[in-house]
């Protein structure tokens, strides 16, 4: 394993100002060539976990290993990890080439090697024409490429990316997502840890996704597995915005609001039915409910419906834009195909 975190716990503050727990008992290992996304809302501890790996925060408890060596007590300068932070933190007084050369010069590489390596890195991220520019003369996307080139110049075994797309606008974000996928193929042996609050980035880039919440790891699994069969209600709704409906067992099967769902097997301890918005179909013979809101999203309409007999629960349904949307307030019938349904435990708190 290239990166290993064992029971890493980070507390901030002291007795006087009150302690806050930023990360609690966090375990993670990332193999060479693997991309793991840490996904969670703000305050979930994902950035703290990344900072602990980089050495920017010192764990209160637990160990961190790089390629088997314990680095918990090593300062960041001795770890040799590549880090790209949210606002990129390019050094504003240094030109692009000097930014990329910074780590190489710190390692006292020969002048020739620095020049060669900088050229190589800039070539890789497509920034060669901008070598003599200052960071403030670059767009957000260009700054990000330089930040990546700077981090990779020191040939780190691990690359940490902290919300690298958060500072960009929507169109650019989509473009840069493609660039990052390409980058992944350029450096096949590096372990990448990618921190994000955006599930689409995690799904697009990660081999495995670690879902985090309130300073703890909730679930970790290969992305496809996590999406298809989320192990927890939180993961189900955070990753892909699944609908969650309370079920009651009825013999072998389950009922939602008294309506039997054919084919779904009851599992003890799993009281919520999870289904993705695009999997719900408007067809006769399903769960009866009413349409309360409709949002046009270009390629689709997202409908929000209530379920007869259930309060506090609404179901979101994605309907292709070419289908007709019922009138607001109209009675509808929702069919939940068995292959799209999975059961998850209810929230414990």
């Amino acid at each position: 394993m290239t990166v290993q975190l064992e029971d890493v716990t980070v507390h901030f503050g002291n007795k006087h100002s009150g302690r806050t727990c930023a990360l609690e008992g966090f375990d993670l290992s990332v193999a060479a060539g693997e991309t793991v996304a840490l996904l969670g809302p703000s305050g979930s501890g994902k950035s703290t976990a990344l900072k602990a790996v980089a050495g920017f925060v010192r764990p209160t408890r637990g160990r961190i290993r790089l390629a088997g060596n314990d680095v918990t007590d090593l300062p960041p300068a001795k770890r040799g990890i590549g880090v790209v932070v949210q606002q990129y933190a390019l050094f504003p007084h240094l030109r692009v080439a000097d930014n990329v050369a910074f780590g190489l010069k710190a390692a006292h590489k020969s002048k020739a090697e620095v020049t060669r390596r900088v050229a190589e890195m800039l070539e890789m991220v497509g920034m060669t024409p901008y070598a003599r520019r200052f960071p403030r003369e670059l767009s957000g996307g260009q700054q990000q490429r330089v930040a990546i080139a700077r981090a990779l110049a020191i040939q780190p075994p691990v690359l940490l990316l902290d919300e690298p797309l958060a500072a960009l606008d929507a169109q650019l974000r989509a473009d840069m997502l493609g660039e990052l996928q390409k980058l992944r193929r350029e450096v096949p042996d590096i372990a990448i840890v990618y921190v994000t609050h955006d599930q689409s980035e995690a799904l697009a880039l990660a081999d495995r996704i670690a879902v985090m919440r309130d300073a703890r790891l909730v679930d970790i699994a290969p992305a496809t597995e996590l999406y298809a069969a989320p192990p927890s209600a939180f993961t189900a709704s955070f990753l892909g915005g699944a609908n969650l409906l309370p079920v009651e067992p009825s013999g072998d099967g389950v009922k939602v609001a008294g309506h039997l769902l054919p084919g779904v097997k009851a599992i003890p301890g799993r009281e919520l039915l999870c289904i993705r918005p695009h999997a719900v179909q408007l067809a006769d013979g399903g769960l009866p409910g009413r349409l309360v809101a409709s949002q046009w999203r270009g390629a689709s309409n997202q409908l929000t419906c209530t379920v007869d007999g259930l309060t506090d629960v609404s179901v979101r349904i994605d309907v292709p834009a070419d289908r007709r949307v019922p009138e607001l307030g109209a009675a509808i019938s929702m069919v939940l195909p068995v292959e799209a349904c999975s059961l998850v435990p209810a929230e414990t708190r």
Binding site: F56, F91, G103
Partner: peptide, 23 residues
């Protein structure tokens, strides 16, 4: 001065003295 710049400089292998002088 963004703290992240100091962090990143350290992660690139620069010791305190170098960070002070160059950043």
């Amino acid at each position: 001065l963004p703290r992240a710049q100091l962090d990143v400089a350290a992660s690139l292998g620069a010791g305190p003295w170098r960070v002070l002088r160059q950043i």
